[in-house]
Each structure stands twice: as C-alpha cells, then as structure tokens.
Write a protein that binds this DNA or RNA. Sequence first.
DNA 1: ACCTGAACACCGTTCAAGT
DNA 2: ACCTGAACACCGTTCAAGT
Lengths: 199, 199
Amino acid sequence: MSERKEKLIEAAIAILNRDGADNLSMRTLARELNRTAASLYNHVRNKQDLFGEIAEQMCADYAMPDQSLPPLDYLLEANRAYRAMLLTVRDSPVVFEDSLPATPRRIAIIRAILEAYIALGVPTGTLLTVSDMVNNYVLSFVADERRFQSRAADEVTAFMSQLLSDAAPMAAPPMDFDAQFEYGLQILFAGIKTVINRV
Amino acid sequence: MSERKEKLIEAAIAILNRDGADNLSMRTLARELNRTAASLYNHVRNKQDLFGEIAEQMCADYAMPDQSLPPLDYLLEANRAYRAMLLTVRDSPVVFEDSLPATPRRIAIIRAILEAYIALGVPTGTLLTVSDMVNNYVLSFVADERRFQSRAADEVTAFMSQLLSDAAPMAAPPMDFDAQFEYGLQILFAGIKTVINRV
DNA sequence: ACCTGAACACCGTTCAAGT
DNA sequence: ACCTGAACACCGTTCAAGT
C-alpha cells in the first residue's frame, strides 16, 4: 500500500467521523485532499473498493480473541470485539455492508470465526446461514444504536408509544446498549447451541 | 388515498420488479407515468415517504396469523408470512429499511407482534432489542437470498472457498432457502426461550 | 505514475408560474 | 388541486490530455 493511498483512506475515515456516510463522496474526498475526483481512481477501482479499503484499515484495530479459547467464548469475544471496532468509526455498518470481504485482514477474521463455528458443532450445511445471521445482528445493532443516539430521547419514546398498546409501555431511553447487545448475543448463541444439539 | 396516488405506488412497484431499487428514482417514476418529477411531490412528501407508501401497500398482502395461536406459533407464522410478503417485490428489504413504520397496516402488524412477544414472556426492557433482532434477521435474510440468486452459483462457491480453509468445504449452492430460513428462525426462538427463562 | 478538465448520465428537492 | 420548466446543488465514472 502506497503512502498516498494510505492518506486517502485516512481522509475518508475523517470525513465519515466528521460528516457521516451521506457526505462521503468521491468529490468531497477529493476536496479534502485538494485534488480532483478523477485522480482518486488511480488508487481505488471505485467507491465500493474505497469502502473495502476503509473496512480493511479498520480491521487493524480489531482485537482478535485468543485462539486457545473454547469455541463459544471465542465467538462471544469475537463479536464483542467486532462491535467495538465498528463503534470507532461513524456509519461503519454501511461501509461493511456495501463492500466485499476480499481483503487480507478481513478474510483472516472471517476464517477464524468460521473455524470456531465448526469447532462449536455447527454443521457445514448451515454454516453460512449461522455466520451471516450473527454478522447481520452485529451490523444492524450498531446501526440502530447510532440512529437511536442521534435522535432525542423524547422523539423515540413518542414514536414507540404510537406502536405499542398502552397496556405495555416500552422501556424508556436512554438505554444501556452494552447490556442490550449482550442480551441479543446470548439469545443467538443459546439458540445455536440448542438447535445444533437437536439433530 | 386518491386514485392518482394509488397509481403512483403501483408504478413504483412495477419499476422495482422490472428494474430494481437502483433504478427507481423520482425521475424514472415520473417518466413511467408520463409526468415530471416535480409533480410527484403533490402526492408524496419525499422519497422516504414514497418507500413508506410502497411498504404500506405491500402490507395488504401480509397473511396475518390467527390471533388465537399460542405466542410462539404466532410469531413463527408471522415471520414466515413477513418473508413471503417481502419476496413478492424485488428489493423490498431496502424499501422497508429506508422507511418508517408509520402507516396503519404496518403499525397494526407490529403491534400484534409486540403483543405476542409480551405474551411469550419477553421482558419489556428487552422488547425492542428482541423484536428488532428478529425483524433484522428477516430483512437481511431476504436481501441475502436475492443477492445469492442473482449471481452465478460458480461465482459464489469460488468466493466462499477463498474464505474457507480447505479442510472444511462449504455446502455448495444451490441452497434450500426455505429450509435455511426456518433454521435461522428456530435458532432465534430457541434462544429467546432459553434466555427469558434464565432470569 | 499520477493528475486535471471536461464531459456523460444521472440524482432529490424546491418553486414560480401556469391550468 | 395538480402539473410544468427551470433551477440548485449535488452524484459516480470515464477519458483525452498534460506533467
């Protein structure tokens, strides 16, 4: 990776954190670098590729769990580390969703996770379904988490009371996102455990 | 709802099915109706609102399960019906993701589902987490399902073998999506059952 | 090897003006 | 009540031409 390309990725991340994904375009990125949009295509094939490079750069901060951990613990830790990494950059879920996991660090992470699922006893025929389910959970949770925080608490409660019968009032924000994330994770892996033992 | 507005929604759905969400714009929709884009704003506040109306229209085809069903069966049926509804329109997951559930039919569906979660024993403090988790599962599954089908099977296997160690070959496409969806659903509700009984 | 300028083919949204 | 034309402020991507 050239130094020039590295600066490009850093600038893109800076824009994400400052202005959000809606304001990261090839043109705004070029402006940030005092260049023209066309010049970016010397370093990146297209915007999807740019997102892929951002995701790959972020994966350097992923705290890979100890390989000697039992599969279940490994997977729980891996998903906590995944969320922690996603939270370091604003709108990172769209970056990961809109790019392919085709870069070295990202592939290494996925391989380790897939092996843990296999060690846990997930049948290979359902491996993709299970891993995608958990991956989508983390991405969606972090995306929702940020949406939630960006709105006023009153607005959220007002909207939710519209959805709920008055008999069962929803828990009022502010929420404990760490606890809620953990709760969902426990559901997923409790479910995986019972279903793979059912066969 | 005016007759004119109804035609607008129908035309939008037709474009989705024919050309996909990437090709549904205010301009292409106007062209479909031999009008100009600006005129659409007499019937719809903005594009997000248009998506909301499409989603609401689709909800007319949702097969609401029998209210007398036990909560677990109700929820399983509801999510199968949800997926079936989503599969009737191409790229429907983006339509649902990019709009707010603020229309009558959609609110009614969500209310019934939330009540079923409560009847199942999900604590109100985690109701939002649990219902969002399942909702995101269905949306992501259908989105992935379509992505999968739109690519050649060879391409998918090639990409996956890159991710997997050769020791554990992935199940080759074509996949049985109905069975995979059911598998994920079983994981989710088995997990919910064990976690809510843990307290 | 890397960059610019200009172009192509688009977006969502607003608004005065028309009927 | 509904529509048009024109405009504003943008997009991603390509490509000949420059250094």
